[in-house]
């Protein structure tokens, strides 16, 4: 724990940008969790109402992001959208880790025929361009939040499997693993207690980085019409919906678009800093520089 907080401190010292990233991500997560309780117009956010008189209102104090073609408050819908993006980001990366980690771990540790078979399967998935594969899967599975998450994680897990595999193959030959084996520990115990914790770093960094990409790709799927259900206030969908009236009511598409931009940027800034802090080489160079002055 102490090392974690010292790392965060180090991060902040190292670059102001990572602090910005941290703020954005924290804000996004809090908004995502609290959205249903803090939106000014909960019914608008859930899409349960419409208001003929309030249609296409430009941004004002009452509606900071204006209103859409149904007279719903865009601000509320964008806030609520954070929740869906959060679910998607966590869901996609979580599910992909859930598949990728066991595959990479077993393939790397067991090796041999089982290992190469698992890795060939992984390579097969890697052969497809990820977004294309996700579009094809999403189109086959049909619309819906859950289906979108599945489609994206299936195109995602091979990256984690491969990353972990490479790491595990080198870690399993390290002396501490040998000593664990000599102590008579079982295979599973060695794999999960010794190999896995020592191989997880690159995957963790990658996972943090991918949160942003998952949001972006989910928005892309919705924009193309194969993502979440049409009445969901998902950001990509909000951008698409506003498209039809972009020439007279730009705010309907602009604000959800900005939300995507800012959130994805936040995740990337944060992940970059995280990667640097966990990469001993960069850290050493930075430290040397600071010492040398």
């Amino acid at each position: 724990m102490a090392s974690a907080s010292s790392q965060v401190l180090w991060l902040i010292r190292r670059s102001k940008l990572s602090l910005v990233g941290l703020f954005i991500v924290a804000g996004f997560v809090v908004t995502g969790i609290l959205a249903p309780f803090i939106v000014p117009y909960p019914e608008d956010a859930r899409g349960e109402t419409y208001n003929i008189e309030e249609r296409f209102q430009p941004p004002s104090w009452e509606h900071p992001f204006g209103t859409d073609e149904y007279g719903r408050d865009v601000f509320s819908r964008v806030l609520m959208g954070a929740r869906y993006s959060l679910i998607i980001a966590v869901g996609v990366v979580g599910l992909a880790l859930l598949i990728g980690i066991p595959v990479g771990l077993v393939a790397g540790y067991v090796g041999g025929r089982v290992g190469s078979m698992l890795m060939r399967v992984t390579d097969m998935f890697l052969a497809f361009p990820p977004l294309l594969l996700a579009i094809a899967l999403a189109a086959t599975l049909g619309r819906g939040l859950f289906n979108t998450i599945i489609a994206l994680s299936i195109s995602w897990w091979p990256w984690y499997a491969r990353l972990l595999y490479v790491r595990v193959t080198s870690v399993k030959n390290m002396p501490f693993v040998d000593s664990a084996r000599l102590l008579g520990l079982g295979r599973l115990a060695i794999m999960f207690r010794h190999v896995l914790p020592n191989s997880l770093t690159p995957v963790t960094v990658q996972a943090a980085l991918d949160m942003g990409s998952a949001i972006l790709e989910a928005a892309g799927l919705s924009f193309l019409g194969v993502g979440v259900d049409p009445s969901t206030p998902e950001w990509g969908l909000l951008v698409t919906e506003g498209w039809a009236s972009i020439s007279s009511a730009w705010w309907i598409s602009l604000f959800p678009g900005l939300a995507i931009l800012v959130t994805v940027l936040g995740f990337n800034l944060l992940a970059d800093a995280l990667r640097e802090s966990l990469d001993p080489r960069i850290r050493r160079i930075a430290l040397t520089r600071r010492i040398l002055g």
Binding site: Q206, L216, G257, L261, A271
Partner: peptide
């Protein structure tokens, strides 16, 4: 990772510019 950050930021920026 580095190129992806640039890429993602660029894509997002382009989206806004298109709008």
């Amino acid at each position: 990772g580095a190129s992806r950050t640039v890429f993602v930021a660029a894509v997002a920026l382009v989206m806004v510019l298109i709008l």
